[in-house]
């Protein structure tokens, strides 16, 4: 049994909240550059260039990439041979978020109740997802999620007869309906199967996958490519001003499901697709 202090988890989360809001990963930057090289629309290229300029300014560490520094989505994979010490894990996670959003001058965007809408003032509580995995390590991912894109996300419980075409048409429909709202070019996370809630979780986790690696399944890899082509034939383009690059990538995660169901969830992210991971 390996002991890990929740204080180490808190410190990591505080740092990742700040880092994720200033520094995008290389896979996303490379993906953006590739789409810029292939963008036929002049205004589309101008918008992608402005987005690249924004990324460079944020990397100076003064201004976050976006003013919506997001709801802190925290994913923990906890090895079953780990013993967490020095306090309550959930409190430590929220303290990490509180410190990161305070020290990093990040926006506090969380309200305590969905209807009375009073701001908690420190961006807590975080959205937390725990998973118990084999081993003696803790893997922590912090993904600040903006709600301009979150609001464009959708879930549908399709009948199994809808099949592959029903799934694909729904994903493209979500991207088309979203239009200019989620700050295209977008990253599209798709969860297929499971239950109602499992599909949504898979769609969110699909946004965390690297953009430069093929899907493990050749079948779903081909579907990702086809969906990206279809979305980028809609003509919405960067910022919705017209162009090819409506989406940078489509990532799919699937799970076994019930004989009567075909859940499909589409989680939309903007071009500021932020996430940082550490292994303790």
């Amino acid at each position: 049994m390996r002991e890990i202090s929740v204080k180490a988890i808190e410190d990591s989360i505080a740092k990742m909240c700040i880092d994720a809001n200033h520094y995008l990963d290389e896979d996303l930057k490379n993906c953006m550059a590739q789409h810029l090289a292939e963008e036929p629309s002049l205004v589309g290229r101008q918008m992608l260039e402005s987005i690249q300029e924004n990324i460079a300014i944020a990397e100076e560490g003064i201004f976050p990439l976006c003013q919506d520094t997001g709801m802190a989505c925290v994913f923990l994979e906890i090895g079953q041979d780990v013993h967490l010490i020095d306090g309550n894990l959930e409190d430590a996670i929220n303290e990490g978020v509180r410190r990161g959003y305070g020290d990093g001058y990040l926006r506090k965007s969380i309200v305590r109740d969905p209807l009375d809408r009073v701001n908690t003032g420190d961006n807590t509580p975080a959205y937390i997802h725990y998973e118990i995995v084999p081993g003696d390590k803790v893997t922590i991912t912090v993904a600040p999620k903006g709600f301009g894109s979150e609001n464009m996300s959708k879930i549908k419980m399709l009948p199994p007869a809808a099949g592959e075409n029903g799934v694909k048409d729904f994903v493209v429909e979500v991207a088309e309906m979203a239009g200019a709202n989620p700050c295209p070019p977008i990253v599209v996370g798709v969860g297929i199967g499971g239950t109602f809630d499992k599909a949504a979780l898979m769609a969110k986790k699909a946004l965390l996958k690297p953009l430069d690696k093929p899907n493990e399944s050749p079948y779903y890899d081909a579907m990702e490519k086809e969906l990206l082509d279809r979305i980028n034939a809609l003509g919405i383009g960067p910022q919705g001003f017209g162009g090819k690059t409506t989406a940078l990538a489509v990532n799919i995660i699937t799970a076994p499901t019930h004989i009567a169901g075909l859940p499909v969830a589409v989680n939309v992210n903007c071009h500021v697709s932020r996430h940082k991971t550490v292994v303790l």
């Binding site: 402005s50 300014i57 990439l65 701001n119 001003f241």
Partner: peptide, 27 residues
Amino acid sequence: AAIGGAAALMARCVKSAEVIAYDDLGA
């Protein structure tokens, strides 16, 4: 339309800022 998600770039255009109402709303 301003460029969505290019918030650092646009921050540089803001030369002064002052809260004039509803301070309790924070951001």
